[in-house]
Design a protein around this nucleic acid. Sequence first.
RNA 1: GGGCGUAUAGGCUCAGCGGGAGAGCACUACGUUGACAUCGUAGGGGUCACAAGUUCGAUCCUUGUUACGCCCA
Length: 917
Amino acid sequence: MIEKTYEPGSVEGRIYEQWLKANAFAAGAGAAPGADTFSIVIPPPNVTGSLHVGHALNNTIQDILVRFNRMLKKDVLWQPGMDHAGIATQMIVERQLMEAQEPSRRDMGREEFLRRVWQWKGESGGTIMNQLKRLGASADFSRERFTMGENGAPDDQMVRAVTKVFVELHERGLIYRAKRLVNWHPGLETAISDLEVENIEVNGHMWHLRYPLADGVTYEFPIEFDEDGRPTAFETRDYVIVATTRPETMLGDSGVAVHPDDERYASLVGKFVDLPLVGRRIPIVADEYADPSLGSGAVKITPAHDFNDFEVGVRNDLEQINIFTTRGEIIDTAPEAYRGLDRFVARKRIVVDLTALAEENSTRGLDHIEDKKIMVPHDEKSKLVVIEPFLTDQWWVKADVMAGPALASVREGRTRFVPQQYENTYFAWLENIKPWCISRQLWWGHQIPAWYGPDNRAFVAHTDFEAQAAANAHYGKPVVLRRDEDVLDTWFSSALWPFSTMGWPDETAELKRYFPTSVLVTGFDIIFFWVARMMMMSLEFEKTEPFHTVYMHALVRDEKGQKMSKTKGNVIDPLALIDQYGADATRFTLAAMAAQGRDIRLAINRVEGYRNFVTKLWNAARFLEMNECRRVEGYDAKANRLPLNRWIVGATARAATAITKGIADYKFNEAANAAYDFVWGTFCDWYVEFAKPIFMGDDASAKAETRATAAYVLDQILKLLHPFMPFVTEELWAETGKHGPARDGLLMLQEWPHLEGLEDPEADADLNWLLNVISSVRSVRTEMNVPASAKLPLIMVGADETTLRRLVASTSLITRLARLEEISPQSEIPSGSAQFVVGEATWALPLAGFIDLEVEKARLAKDIGKLEGEIAGVDKKLANAQFVAKAPTEVIEEQKSRREAAIDRRDRIGAALARLS
RNA sequence: GGGCGUAUAGGCUCAGCGGGAGAGCACUACGUUGACAUCGUAGGGGUCACAAGUUCGAUCCUUGUUACGCCCA
């Protein structure tokens, strides 16, 4: 017996265990012999992560695709795994050490610290994998991979993959080491990539500083102008004014730049200024970077602490003077007064000191301060720490070179984006890509396979043994090597994910079978971080694209359209949704709202609505069971006699087509809605209602056919809904399997319905007529305020043979569903009746003494008004010679038949109205 | 500043689309109906942001404007 209520909480865990026990998620489970493959690699969630609603959407979509393709009997692999998430994970463990008042990372040393991180990873990392299981994810968890492998050891396959890629890219000249400005995180004391920096606009200031000219040099600076902007008055100055948003960087100034065409300063190029507070003599250079229209037109140049200034410095051979420690404090080579000060403290101190200078001498020190909105680089994760351009030695990937093939793949259609518009985003970034800084000054991650000799020459090699050999050969004697302490950017290893998870660099069977993958499902926010880099790495090492299709799904926002964030407190926890409404309702909601190219505003009431849908399905199945609708061995859906049953199998076929097409086109909302409409709006609302009188009647053969058909259609529904709602469908599959022929296994391994050829236009016409009559009676009853309890007679006038035949076949149905007393064909409409028109016939509900004539007249008049409007519209079109001449004939025919139908209807209703007065 | 996207029911969340404006929620009325009140039946409600253009015909295509969102600088 199917329970009275469906309780997801008690069913889901049990069903999931059954799937696991049956090994139904394993690669190739249920596949037809020799079937095509379908493979997906999961976007590996951070090992520190927990399931948020974005993951829920991402994995719901993957699971729908995977379950669908598995039911198509393909050889399916959904490859799961996690990312070691270098920075995030290291921070978590460091914080734990701090909270437990244990020795810090540096105090305990690298080896012990890493042991602790692995320990933590083993204990509490991977929560998210269990949370994915709650969602119903059918990934092959036996193949779970981690970006750092089992234990991070050099001979671990995942580590070998990274090492091989690094070494070979280095050999090919695509990885190099160089001293460049990087985005430096002074809190974490590591470099980060430009993608991990977020520029945030803040209210800042522009400080205008006077730099005195050296060697007694003066010049004439224009201070008044005529209408045409020509200078009319000058003053003699022995200083230049430079403007900066970061006064503290003046400690590292090594030049002042003016534009080569700026006449005001032409005489100063090649002269020097004495840097205030520091006393350094620095040159004035001409460089096009200086914009004459901004501020005074002269800019201070700090090559070691600004990306633009760095370039200016290189062009003009200016010194690169670093003024910060790795923690963003002023270094000891700076003037004593500032040593050891934090960046922002130093800024204040310098402004104070420059102000003091100005008070002593009005041609020195601070000129003035201007309020200005400025863009400040922040750490993209915390959005709190200001990122510092910092000069260090780092490892870089020549991303611009590798971008070429990655661009070509998409341009030439070997990989396509869905929706396509994201290709533009991809192109725009790859066309302007900058070198990728891949080294991080962390401990948690893939340690860079480079060893340094006594003179700091780097030997890049697969193993220390190999490096040692190379070094010994190079120096001609045994030397002591020191391994690079740094690790690689997390995204370096994630970039290899589609093939490293399949065993690369070993030539495994999986790699051969499942790579390249079929589709990547991910959010657009990691196109650059991940998608583009997987493309580059795969094309470089496997000479093929890692996936044929990239499906980009939307961002999930709250119902007001705001990004969910912990600080805003508007986070919807998918696990809470699953607890409250069930995994199926949660999944169905996400799928139903996943329209392409549009953000999802998740509204709880939608989840509630789809929870109700789960209940509806449950109850329908329960009703069928109660009415002994059992599957029949050898049932043939094409052999039905009753129009009702011929109609429903045809409608099922249409629904199957729509759902199949929706999933295949990545239009999950269309598939979900087609399923919802069919199951609720057609199967439950009409078919089951029509079936009731048959079940209660005594026509044994009709009863048998309808029972068998109902059971058959329910089976199809369970299959069609399974990718969206795996739990409730699997449970009902088992319940309905208790009667009738034995099931051959789990629903998730059944074959997807192929129902072509079941459509039956004749039955459709019969049933549409029936729906129409019943709806019309119901509508009239409501509008006439007829109590639901009142059973009325229905009179039909002017029916043709078809209608009579239909009426004979369906009298009991109509009587029941429209709550009638009896139905009789008559030759005349009784006076005082409410009337309506279906087809050629006019129908009447004799309500004399009961209906309000005026209300009925108004109702009919309103209908006529609508029809008149429609007729007028069509007439106008048909009267237009251009329309008749140019519109396609089928459109014209359609308009004509619409017009006829409307006129016919209007006339009949008009006649009904006339009878009332 | 450059790029991308979105504007559809007097409320909310959203479909759709070159020829007849849709769903769910909310709302109103009714509910003695042997699956389901997590329900049923019916109903009200939109000049599809604004303007111009293309077209026989525009909610849909083009351009512009406005508003909002996102990405990049």
